[in-house]
Design a protein around this nucleic acid. Structure first.
Lengths: 147, 147
DNA sequence: TATAATTTCCCACTTTCTCCCACGAACGAC
DNA sequence: GTCGTTCGTGGGAGAAAGTGGGAAATTATA
């Protein structure tokens, strides 16, 4: 199984289409993916198997009668939509999701091994800048792990 | 296994290719390496086994639903890409990584035992200058260790 | 029903990447 | 020093990827 990682910068065209970088398509070439709102200001794109996995966990752990459960379902499960790759390897991003992530022309696509994140380039830059010191702290703590 | 050390100065050509110094290729001659963002303003190049080691540790500690975990994934895991040596012993450095490390024509390649660091020459000079006093302090503390 | 707006499919252009070969400098052996 | 090999650097041709736009199909709107 391939790595499915990398950071790429593609442009969202006027029709709301975005190329999925060839290196992230990998074996996923065929079939439909699930696109939904991420936890930060980004979108998550899941291959079928991973989405099945995640959605089932979310559903099973949660009860209709817990406020928190309903919140998670509304925030992750409900906004999800299926998208397909066209012949040029692009997906059409529905307007509601575009708005959620604040996508403009320049987008950043992140491969995170098992799924893909889509960010507005400027929003991502800002996210990284805001969290740099937190990252450095975390890296320090990871010190024991490293080679 | 060899030490994999040394400091080298090679040039990044206009196509984004950089020679890996022959002395660092060593036994790593074959196969694909993983290139990713380092913690400072440099790139890290890992042999397959070392990367597997590190990435699995990073993944195991992480969940989609922890802010810190997502940060680490985005900062270390996501930018990683596999690269291969061409017949001349070069790797092609993807644009996003080139930008992150601010690579221009002159690059410094550092062998650090189990992995390799790639710096922009000027950025590296500056890093060393800025951290010299910190280094001297650290060296003091190492006093007990030395020969 | 007719018209407008949006989506989908397909084609074409431009840029980037990839593979291959070649030149010249540095190094080592003799 | 001379010769041969290795190493770093550059460039050309072909392929692949990303991007834009037109026309058909679908949906919505009046």
């Amino acid at each position: 199984m391939e790595p499915l990682t990398g950071e790429f910068r593609n442009t969202l065209d006027e029709k709301g289409r975005l190329s999925v970088p060839a290196k992230l398509r990998g074996e996923l070439e065929v079939g439909t993916f699930t696109l939904t709102q991420g936890v930060d200001k980004c979108l998550w794109l899941f291959p079928p198997a991973e989405w099945k996995n995640l959605s089932e966990k979310l559903m099973s752990e949660t009860s209709l009668f817990h406020a928190r459960a309903r919140l998670i379902q509304r925030r992750i499960l409900a906004p999800s939509q299926e998208v397909e790759l066209d012949k040029a390897g692009r997906i059409a991003i529905p307007q509601s999701l575009r708005e959620y992530a604040g996508l403009s022309k320049d987008c950043v696509i992140l491969g995170i091994s098992k799924y893909v994140e889509i960010w507005d380039a400027e929003a991502y830059r800002q996210y990284l800048a805001e969290h740099e010191s937190e990252f450095l702290e975390a890296a320090e703590e990871l010190g024991e792990l490293t080679l």
